[in-house]
């Protein structure tokens, strides 16, 4: 378990929560607006580096 960053794309609420990567993917709900448009801000490689959606 680690503290991970989350960002709600509905109400713009940013928060930290305990989250284990093993649980991924799972349903996320914004604690403030109850939306599911919650983005898990995982540590990504630098912009454009290697990560290409095919």
């Amino acid at each position: 378990m680690a503290l991970e960053n989350f960002h709600c794309l509905r109400c713009n609420h940013k928060y930290k929560a305990e989250f284990s990567k093993k649980e991924w993917p799972r349903e996320l709900t914004c604690p403030k607006c109850k939306s599911n448009s919650v983005r898990w801000l995982k540590k990504r490689a630098a912009k454009g580096a290697g990560k290409k959606d095919s």
Binding site: L9, R10, E27, S35, N36, S37, V38, R39
Partner: peptide
Amino acid sequence: RPERVQLEW
């Protein structure tokens, strides 16, 4: 903006 795509269950 990623906000343009919304997800909801």
